[in-house]
Design a protein around this nucleic acid. Sequence first.
DNA 1: TTGAAAGCGCTAACAA
DNA 2: TTGTTAGCGCTTTCAA
Lengths: 340, 340
Amino acid sequence: MSKDHSSNIREVAALAGVSIATVSRALQQPDKVRPETRKKVFDAVRQANFVPNAQAASFRRQSNNTVILLVRDIGNPFYLEIYKGVEEAAGEAGFKVLMGDARNDEHRVATHIDMVRQKHADGLILMTGQFPSELLDQGDALPPIVIASETVPGLELPTVKVDNRAASMNAVRHLMEAGHERIVHLAGPVPESLAQERFDGYRAALAEAGIAYADELVVTGDYSIEAGRQAIAGLLEGGIVFTAIFASSDQMAIGAISELRGRGLSVPGDVSVIGFDDIIFANAFEPPLTTVRQPRQEMGRRAMALMVDRLNGKRTAETIVLDTELVVRGSVAPCRPPHR
Amino acid sequence: MSKDHSSNIREVAALAGVSIATVSRALQQPDKVRPETRKKVFDAVRQANFVPNAQAASFRRQSNNTVILLVRDIGNPFYLEIYKGVEEAAGEAGFKVLMGDARNDEHRVATHIDMVRQKHADGLILMTGQFPSELLDQGDALPPIVIASETVPGLELPTVKVDNRAASMNAVRHLMEAGHERIVHLAGPVPESLAQERFDGYRAALAEAGIAYADELVVTGDYSIEAGRQAIAGLLEGGIVFTAIFASSDQMAIGAISELRGRGLSVPGDVSVIGFDDIIFANAFEPPLTTVRQPRQEMGRRAMALMVDRLNGKRTAETIVLDTELVVRGSVAPCRPPHR
DNA sequence: TTGAAAGCGCTAACAA
DNA sequence: TTGTTAGCGCTTTCAA
């Protein structure tokens, strides 16, 4: 019968009649020990019910092959597939992934950066544009950080993103081609870069088509369903007239549609809507949401790859830009005379 | 200027002119050192740019105040709010939370249990009914595990769940009160307990109302949108007649509705639908989904509380049962003559 | 191919 | 209140 209290490498060594160094080697680099020795060790491991203490190993190695994926808001399903991509690449490289929630709070970003400083993890994949300004000038003193999807002005770090400006222009053009001119933009938390880039794309598309930009048509939010709801409620109550919406997240688009419906307006009958992200619910929604697809899984994979590079000592601040795709489904219709 | 390579407690001690024990104490239990000494230490910490190595501390303490939240499928937003509850309670108790994805694969459950054995984390909050059978008989030799939402037959562990059977009966009754008799059940992966309990509730409600149970009306799935879609596609193509659906997850309900619509059927016009979970999208959906609300955040909080108890040496296998609530929204209508 | 031994940075028991 | 000191379990260098 095997003992049940957890044993250590010394017991195994004693049992196998070898030194602890040999046990360690047999486990880490089996080809470095003679087959017979290896067998003795393995038998002893089994007999002692030995499970190596990863904490001790990490401590000794001064690294634990774990990275933190810190997202803006874990409530947004957008990040789920990112996580999958990160985890996949991490697994291949022998890393574990810890997912953290910044809750739209830059203080929590600082907390997680501290976790890396304290060696809880080897690096941080950052997926929020909020960054504690007091850390901005630390430059080289920052622990390994890779940014995904967003960017932080003033921080030169390895980054994976999409061309938000171009993607937005494309989406807005699609709306204009359907005859829409009074297009609301549900923006992210401008002036953060990500939100700003999409906003810029919206303006650029308008300008290109010779449509005047109107401040009253732009509302910012935190990408949540609730933000989408509230934005539309405010617009409608303010008597603002519009026939289409370009939202910078599917969640805001869905919140907007829900609110429109609650007030008796139909989508796309009265108002056409385009979202951003192509989360899993976009396609199951009614109407199926026309949206900008981001290659989320790949974004996650590439971010993790950049992290591995960084942890291997590479110190470039490479930026990878991935393609987006406008997925046309059922939430956009030709423009009809505006409501009211 | 402060140095940028990370310093250790010895340097700080030297700088402050005290022993390393005093530095440790000043940082961990400030009230145990004289204010003046404390100040000297803090100054030295700042000057040396000292960040305690949490890994070393964890190693020394043989615990790292981290728990893993292992969920069946991280793609299901159901788990997001659970995570929030867990994280909240964890924060209060000084714990960190690591979220892992079992991907409906019991092998990955084993992997994560190993992570705890290897001291990557102190405990595991398990949110899947899949469990490697070879670990079942380990009983006391298992690391600290708490189960949430699901149960594993043969495993006596601290558990938080809802009364799935009663909740299902309630939902099905609601459908029958609207006149429905041909009610499809989109079940989870029976015979896992969670799925089984909801299935039992469905049957019990039917029996109570004197409606015959029909095998053809029950389809199992893995709680995903896609599973809901496919189940309905199969039913419709098989010529099965029904007027209502009780799904054991909102995602399956949403997938089902999407498929129904794709085939020209309306909800709730032709088919009424009730889901389970009340994920954030349920309310924004069209029609707003009638569903069984689970107190997710509380479930997370209680699970974490059980974990803290367990880590403090409590060895009971307490089961906490939380209340559910049928949230009536717009996806159920009085029964009309069945389609076809 | 194997063993001896140093030591990662910290905590905590014990002594002063 | 503070200091001394013995490790936690492992990896890794160096020597044999």
